[in-house]
């Protein structure tokens, strides 16, 4: 860190965003009975975790992590997730979509994607562990329904978000109060853009799963995206498998998360690429958001992230 006595008093955008994120995390923990961070190993949840390590330093992060595992995750990401949890000495709870499918509580969808199936294990996990404050890495710039959500967002007994009846959120006075059975979702990165996240990753030298950087991989085209052969994807005879240099802009369910062709090997390559891209992050890589005009809003109303 630079010598603050000579540094200019004004905070840069990244400094402001970092300070705001830390403030939000501390505020939520200050009022929570049992907080938890939804941690997938994706870049946004990694950044939230990084902010949390700063917020409570020189103490450890004082909450558990929860991952909703679709069973369709990339091995590299799961390995990274476990290594990160181990490094920080934290406790990880995993809610498995596969368990729900095995015992019939959930059924596989015809299109094979499991992203929408995460809601039930997520809500069960929250109820089972009695979490009252649930941190997530969602950003308002990701999607038009997310653009409408409060930093501290109330969820009812069914985990549902009511976009037409949100509480006022005034200044930086966040209100996490809720009745028994309800909980709040807290989004410390609400005001960050994809580019802010990458610049911060660069500045703070934050490690990410290797999938985020360019690598050579077997891929095939589906719905205008590059998918990779994975146990979760039914590769058809007509699918032409080719080798391409790709990277992932988001890491999620391998059956519906697409890679993009990219030569970006380093963080600064990625920053240059994100800065000049003309396609949104989810538009480029998420089939589940293409289901309908209000796909995200509908999922959020049901209790999704």
């Amino acid at each position: 860190m630079t010598d603050q006595t000579t540094a200019p008093a004004r905070l840069s955008t990244l400094d402001s965003l970092e300070a705001e994120g830390i403030h939000i995390i501390r505020e939520a923990v200050g009022t929570a009975r049992k907080p938890v961070l939804l941690f997938s190993g994706g870049k946004d949840s990694v950044v939230v975790l990084h902010l949390a390590t700063k917020a409570f330093w020189p103490g450890k992060v004082p909450f558990e992590l929860l991952h909703v595992d679709t069973g369709h995750n990339f091995d590299e990401v799961l390995e990274f997730r476990d290594r990160t949890v181990e490094r920080l000495g934290l406790r990880l709870q995993v809610a498995k979509v596969q368990d729900y499918i095995d015992d019939g509580r959930l059924r596989e969808r015809p299109d094979g994607t499991r992203n929408p199936l995460q809601t039930v294990p997520l809500l069960d996990g929250i109820a089972e562990h009695k979490y009252d404050v649930v941190f997530g890495g969602a950003r308002r710039d990701e999607e038009k329904a997310r653009a409408k959500e409060r930093v501290v967002s109330l969820r009812d007994e069914f985990g549902a978000w009511d976009p037409r009846n949100q509480r006022p959120e005034l200044w930086n006075l966040y209100n996490p109060r809720h009745l028994p059975g309800q909980h709040v979702r807290v989004f410390p990165l609400s005001n960050w853009t994809e580019l802010d996240v990458w610049r911060y990753i660069e500045r703070e030298n934050i490690e990410l799963p290797s999938l985020y950087y360019a690598h050579e991989r077997d891929v095939f085209q589906r719905d205008g995206m590059w998918l990779t052969p994975h146990h979760s994807v039914r590769v058809r005879d007509t699918d032409q498998i080719v080798k391409r240099t790709v990277r992932y802009r988001t890491v999620g369910d391998a059956s519906c998360t697409g890679a993009v062709e990219s030569p970006a090997i380093t963080v600064s390559d990625v920053i240059a690429e994100v800065a000049s891209t003309r396609i949104t992050e989810r538009g480029a890589t998420r089939a589940d958001d293409r289901l309908s005009e209000a796909a995200m809003e509908d999922r959020k109303k049901e209790g999704y992230f």
Partner: peptide, 21 residues
């Protein structure tokens, strides 16, 4: 499928404001 580095008008990344500053 979309490749993220195709447009020419935006290829000048230096024109993008540096949010660290």
């Amino acid at each position: 499928p979309e490749s993220v580095t195709t447009t020419d008008d935006a290829s000048d990344a230096s024109a993008v404001p540096d949010t660290t500053r």
